[in-house]
């Protein structure tokens, strides 16, 4: 009852004035208070990143001896060294090729499975759901040795070693999809459950097939959920290094490695153990960070909107 009263009071001239006056001290204090906390956390998150980026413009001598001060002169040579030694351009290309397919297909397959499991009752539904759930809880590195053999042998068995075998785009794409599925399914499952059933029923009565219904009606409705899980998958696959480190390596001295970006970065990190070139390492880091940062900033609004929709609606 009080709720409705106050709601009605708001538009009147006197209402807001009095209420604002009443809560002013608390509000001002809280605002100041929240700004301090937010700013402190913002610094804790932002400063290390800025610091790391700045290091790429400095000489090794400065990095070692005055790590906390600004560079006296700005060098960009480290970026060139990182580009050549870290093969950033080439590995960036490989990463994009793999992720174009793996992210898209992860989402498609994940949505298909999640939709069927969430909206259709059939024997074995729960079993399949828990099968995917299991994938969420197993430590990834434990399946590594068997996974290597599986990729190798399956491709050989099918005569497709150069397509989906070791050190191929196809092989890594399939593995990425498979390992992204549990989380994608888990996330989208709860999402599809909450979507209204009315539309679906109406569609079916209109004579639409289940497939049409999915692609024409349910998938567009699930867009917010797809956006957020898409972001997860992009970040997850972009930063993945255990899987490519196992599968994307030349299998003999006569093969070219199709490394992805994280492997290039890892190489730079490992190199820094034998020949110190800190600036190069930080520059590589910055270069590797940049594309995903730009993606994030560009799509920031959609991502936030997607997240808003995904869980609650």
């Amino acid at each position: 009852m009080t709720t409705t009263t106050s709601k009605h009071e708001l538009p009147t001239a006197s209402g807001p004035v009095t209420t604002t006056e009443k809560r002013k001290p608390e509000g001002r204090f809280l605002t100041g208070f929240s700004h301090v906390f937010l700013a402190v956390w913002g610094l804790m998150v932002g400063v290390p990143l800025i610091w790391a980026t700045v290091q790429s413009f400095r000489s090794d001598d400065e990095i070692l001896h005055q790590p906390l001060s600004l560079p006296t002169s700005w060098h960009i040579g480290a970026f060139g060294r990182a580009w050549t030694k870290g093969h950033i351009g080439e590995y960036f290309f490989n990463t994009i090729v793999v992720m174009t397919f793996s992210v898209t297909l992860s989402m498609l397959f994940g949505a298909m499975v999640a939709y069927v499991l969430a909206r259709y009752r059939f024997p074995g539904n729960r079993a399949i759901y828990y099968l995917f759930f299991t994938g969420l809880v197993m430590p990834i590195f434990l399946g590594l040795i068997p996974l290597y053999k599986t990729v190798q042998n399956l491709a050989a068995m099918l005569g497709l070693s150069s397509v989906i075998g070791l050190n191929t785009y196809g092989g890594l794409i399939l593995v990425y999809i498979a390992y992204s599925l549990p989380f994608t399914v888990f996330f989208l499952h709860s999402f599809f459950r909450t979507l209204s059933t009315d539309v679906a029923e109406a569609g079916l009565i209109d004579g639409a097939s289940h497939t049409t219904l999915f692609f024409r009606v349910m998938l567009p409705m699930a867009k917010p959920g797809l956006v957020s899980i898409g972001l997860f998958n992009i970040i997850g696959q972009w930063n993945q290094f255990i899987l490519p480190n196992l599968l994307m390596k030349p299998q003999s001295g006569f093969e070219e490695g199709k490394f992805v970006l994280t492997q290039g970065l890892l190489n730079l990190v490992n190199n820094s153990k034998y020949e110190t070139d800190w600036a190069r390492l930080f520059a590589g880091m910055t270069l590797a960070m940049l594309p995903i940062l730009v993606t994030y900033l560009v799509f920031n609004r959609q991502i936030q909107a997607g997240l808003t929709g995904s869980i609650t609606k």
């Binding site: 397959f109 994940g110 298909m112 499975v113 939709y115 069927v116 259709y120 059939f122 399949i128 099968l131 995917f132 299991t134 994938g135 197993m138 434990l142 399946g143 590594l144 068997p146 996974l147 599986t150 990729v151 399956l154 399939l174 593995v175 999809i177 498979a178 390992y179 599925l181 549990p182 097939s209 289940h210 497939t211 999915f214």
Partner: peptide, 26 residues
């Protein structure tokens, strides 16, 4: 039924081959 099987078949197969099968071997 065909729809359910059609939607599940390939993703589940992929998942079983590359995730579940290695874990089973584990």
């Amino acid at each position: 039924a065909r729809f359910i099987v059609g939607f599940l078949f390939f993703p589940v197969l992929l998942y079983v081959v590359y995730v579940i099968w290695p874990y089973l071997q584990t």
